[in-house]
């Protein structure tokens, strides 16, 4: 999968209430959630973001609640990938489970600037900054999580396992 887009940059500890405020959690419709993505950090984000764009942030991205609505909103807003220095753990799991590509890279998080044009090779974990002509390495994804991605998300992975167990 080819990932390439313009960068939207955010700071440290971006919490799930910023990604999708709880006042919109009376729905789980991805399209509706996307319309409010990052609203409390940048009210115009959902309007400005273009399909394929990439979010870059500092440490502990996605901290706070367990709401899967957060990665769902980001994905449905058209964001192709999130790169951060570190991710909060529930957000990390959720992103894999719903198929939102995420990469951990302190170097990329530090050097990439808002508006840069960046390409990402997910399998290789290579991030290329086209604007600045630099490349950065991301932390390797554990093999088990790669299996989940290969199966097309956790639900497909579980469905396959249940079939093998003869439960369905």
């Amino acid at each position: 999968m080819e990932i390439k887009g313009k960068i939207w940059k955010f700071g440290n500890d971006v919490d799930t209430d910023v990604i999708i405020p709880a006042r919109y959690l009376n729905t789980s419709d991805p399209g509706e959630l996307a319309g409010h993505c990052m609203e409390d950090a940048d009210p115009l984000f959902a309007k400005k973001v273009r399909p394929g764009d990439i979010i870059v942030a500092g440490k502990n991205f996605g901290c706070g609640s367990s709401r899967e609505h957060a990665p769902i909103a980001i994905k449905a807003a058209g964001v192709s990938c999130v790169i951060a220095r570190t991710f909060a753990r529930i957000f990390y799991r959720n992103a894999f489970n719903i198929g939102l590509p995420i990469l951990e890279s302190a170097e990329a998080a530090g050097k990439i600037q808002e508006g840069d044009e960046v390409a990402v090779d997910l399998e290789g974990g290579i991030i290329t900054n086209i604007t600045r002509n630099e490349t950065y390495r991301a932390t390797r994804v554990p093999p088990f999580m790669q299996q989940i991605i290969a199966a097309g998300g956790l639900i497909n992975y579980v469905a396959e396992r249940m079939k093998k167990r003869g439960d369905t």
């Binding site: 959720n94 489970n97 719903i98 998300g153 956790l154 249940m162």
Partner: peptide, 18 residues
């Protein structure tokens, strides 16, 4: 520990999680 909705869905089916 807290997990997301998809993890919960998988756990409701399997009675297990990773």
């Amino acid at each position: 520990t807290g997990v997301g909705s998809t993890d919960l869905a998988a756990a409701m089916a399997l009675g297990e999680t990773w």
